[in-house]
Design a protein around this nucleic acid. Sequence first.
DNA 1: TCTGGGGTCCTAGGACCC
DNA 2: TCTGGGGTCCTAGGACCC
Length: 420
Amino acid sequence: MQIYALVDCNHFYVSCERAFAPYLQNQPVGILSNNDGCLVALSPELKNLGVTRGTPGFKINEIVKNQKVYLFSSNYELYGDMSTRVMKILASMVNDIEIYSIDEAFLFIDNISDKKIVYDLALEIKKKVYQFTSIPISIGLAKTKTLAKIATNMAKKSFNGIFELLDENIEENLLKSTSIENIWGIGRNYTKRLNKYGIFTGYDFIKASPYLIRKEMGIVGERSQLELKGTPCSDMTTLPPDTKSIICSRSFGKPVSSYEKLLETVSTYCSTAVHNLREKGLVAKNLTLFITTNPFKDTKQYANYINCSLPDYTAYTPEFLNLCAILLKKIFKENYQYKKSGIMLTDIIKQNVIQPNLFSLSYGDDKRHLVMRVMDKINNKFGTEKIYFASNGVKKSWKMKREKTSKRFTTRWDELMTVK
DNA sequence: TCTGGGGTCCTAGGACCC
DNA sequence: TCTGGGGTCCTAGGACCC
């Protein structure tokens, strides 16, 4: 018997905050996105107050005032580290694990003939993860990943946090009561299209003609359909896939209109992205830069992007920074209130497979590489941006808001939890 | 005043090649 | 009536995911 188990951490960011602040237990808790913009994670108690994911923070001021809601800025350093801990525990308990996102992982369970044993294993996993991280998880068990997703949704509605979907009658009933928009791979747009053909539930979907599904959704839809019928169509990818792009973009705390300040923003984001590139042992050749005004405001709108390739693959920050200045000049327009900018690195390969250009040194061998290494070492040890490029700006009046951040309890010595 | 950020995959169409 | 056929590569855009 081959079983896919999907482990999903319950309201993960909230649970991370709760792990270090027990008074948040059973209280309405919400985590805000970057710039304290909108809600990205909610505790069930907050959901019960009628608040939904994606709501802008300022729209719930009223509720926050009246109901005592605890709001936090997102603390990705903490969540990332907690995620690593959870994944390590999972990996120690099964042979094959595919880390799917910061709070989800597929486990592949093979060679177990008895359903009961699988269920007990899931129970043990859940217990152990909670014991070592105090993160509550839900586990769905099924024949394919897509079915496991549905099982996990059920597991979240109690059932001890574990739902096993291996009985065909239960499967059929569950598909009948599952709307297609809740199926993995079917989003808002495909839901609308399929509704036109009278397809509303998972059951309608598996009964629909494969030709129709193929026509409307392409190969992806056809795969989803097969998976729901019990045929696995996606392998476990136990090795992390090669990075194809790295994006760094942010909204500003305050709008920016001068070229100089806008350049500070893209330079800062660019430095971060190229740093990430180096951390992964990669080099890139292509840079895309974009700027945009605030689409939610009634002011003059402008958005544009531009993209350019370097002559060689590199992870040398100044080279990208120079390019940023040139590219920004080309698309920058005066008299606009810019709200967001960003850069994307593409055409990425591993540093150790660079094909050196006949006329230049390869990045790994020259002094530029060493300078970057020293810089990264200093910043990794003493904190981000201890040393940085002048083009990133010194004052950064546009910096994003993060007014309610908790401490980075698990990754900074000076932010360890104190017990009074 | 205040509305996130980072990714992947697939497809259609155009340019170009022999 | 009918105007070759087969292929690759690249890009933009659309869809999805968390």
